[in-house]
Design a protein around this nucleic acid. Structure first.
Lengths: 152, 152
DNA sequence: TGTGAATATCAATTCAAC
DNA sequence: GTTGAATTGATATTCACA
């Protein structure tokens, strides 16, 4: 089916770009040779329950559904608490050591959060490397992770 | 200041009504003798970072910001875990017994979540009474609370 | 059922006024 | 800094069709 595939692309686009308008999706999907119109994107957004969030910086951007975000964060917090060993930072990198076998799961949860200050994530057996979009972004991210670790 | 007061009303309206369009806010605020236009509501929504959520039932409704919802849920979960004693259900009611002093806090957290299946909440020193909008709603709510209690 | 083109509806912004 | 009226801009829906 075509719709499914397109919606997977849309999900991926959510992480990497600040998407302000539905037309942005149209443009970005066309760059991937997926031809759609705004009407279809509107329907996809309804399907996927994406929301248009007023961002602190003044604009708007599309984001994952609230409930899914909360669920993902719960899993992330639990995984962090269960598997966390230590972490270190350097430049735009955060390196998290975890119990063997937990790297990939943790990395994919962090990706699923679509943190907008994360450039990319990489998990091997017992290590997760997170690359921030900037030094500030990396600091923010670090604080987010610490907050998750210390519960609240 | 006028803006602040209006935004307080808007926040309250979020809980009690399924608000689908900005004009709905205008209408409901006018019923409370607060005269505004759609333009102002649009700006308030940006200010408060409210989002228009595609609901499962096919429509759309405005909802609180994701982050705040997550924060509130965390507090609610913690309070529940800390203070929970027992609970009972009858008809559309859920009655939660908590440690003395925790009733009001728990009640206000549940209200802050703006669960759409909750009709109203009432907390005294060691008891919280939640009134569901229907029998089904009350069952759903019960499950939500159990889920929160058992962590996840 | 899923889609695009056209359209209707809804939301954000501009601009003037306060 | 805040607002309403008018406007522009964006999104949801309708309608025809694959």
């Amino acid at each position: 089916m075509k719709k499914q595939e397109r919606q997977r692309y849309i999900k991926r686009l959510l992480s990497s770009n600040e998407i302000e308008r539905q037309e942005d999706f149209v443009r970005l999907l066309r760059a991937e040779d997926i031809d759609v119109t705004q009407a279809t994107i509107s329907r996809d957004i309804k399907d996927m329950q994406l929301v248009k969030v007023p961002s602190v910086t003044g604009g708007y951007h599309y984001s994952m559904p609230v409930q899914k975000k909360m669920d993902t964060e719960k899993k992330l917090r639990r995984t962090l608490k269960d598997a966390y060993v230590s972490y270190a930072t350097q430049d735009k990198f955060v390196l998290i050591k975890v119990l063997p076998g937990n790297g990939p799961a943790l990395a994919s949860l962090i990706e699923a959060m679509h943190y907008d200050n994360v450039f990319g994530t990489l998990g091997d057996d017992d290590t997760v490397l997170i690359i921030g979009k900037s030094l500030d972004a990396t600091l923010d991210l670090q604080q987010t992770l610490q907050r998750l670790l210390s519960d609240n």
